[in-house]
Amino acid sequence: MLRVDNLRKRYRTGDEALKGVSFSVPDGEVVGLIGPSGAGKSTLIRCINRLVEPNDGDVFLNELNVTKLGRGDLKRARRRIGMIFQEYALVERLSVMENVLSGRLGYVSFWQSFTRRFPQSDVDKAFSLLERVGLTDHADKRADALSGGQRQRVGIARALEQDPELLLIDEPTASLDPKTSRQIMRLITEICRERNLPAIINIHDVPLAQAFVDRIVGLQEGEVVFDGPPSDLTEDVLTRIYGEEDWTTMHGDQDEPEDTHPHPARNDPTAELV
């Protein structure tokens, strides 16, 4: 359970990225965070694990107030929050296995991590995660030898290796082709359901978000302007979030025949207009 309360962030340049954002995410719910570039999506999820320091407001992770923690406690809190990045953010020159095991850095001593002698339980977990994301055969390849979709799978495994209580996901599909994007989104949402994990996904692709997430939060100029199920995302709402545009053509090319999953967008009034 994550609760964000009146979160504010003003950068030193004077830009007000977040103007009092509040919402909460119950366990097992996957929230898609949408909004135009510069709306503060990236800042918001980075304020939750304090890679960006918020100026005001609170973030509660299962009753622990993350914003009030000192350095040591913050590190311990961070290991409970998994993060998946745009462009994967793998350490390119380390092997897949080392990347996955780096999810345990918050748990092991520097010496253990330096000598790469992780506890066997961590290694077992890493193997089972690699199997879950379908990369068992690639464990000893270097991360830069993988394709985009494979790299993002490693990113997912790294985040899960932390045994997180929350997933923060920043534009997971920004550099992937449509098919791989759907596979990655499906994998993320499946895993969240399996583990009853709350997750926030920053995402640009509205139809993709509608297809996979349970709930959508729309951010515009640092404020929440929409919060509801994907089916409520009408033309009016999209205009409120992104500004004026002809939204009716949006779903035109989304009908992939191999897609057997139910398409929540079908219930969307905008979809009727296609």
Partner: peptide
Amino acid sequence: MPITKSENGAAVWTHR
């Protein structure tokens, strides 16, 4: 390869 199987069949990973 740094991945080997131990006697009880569990996968073992060493850095080198």
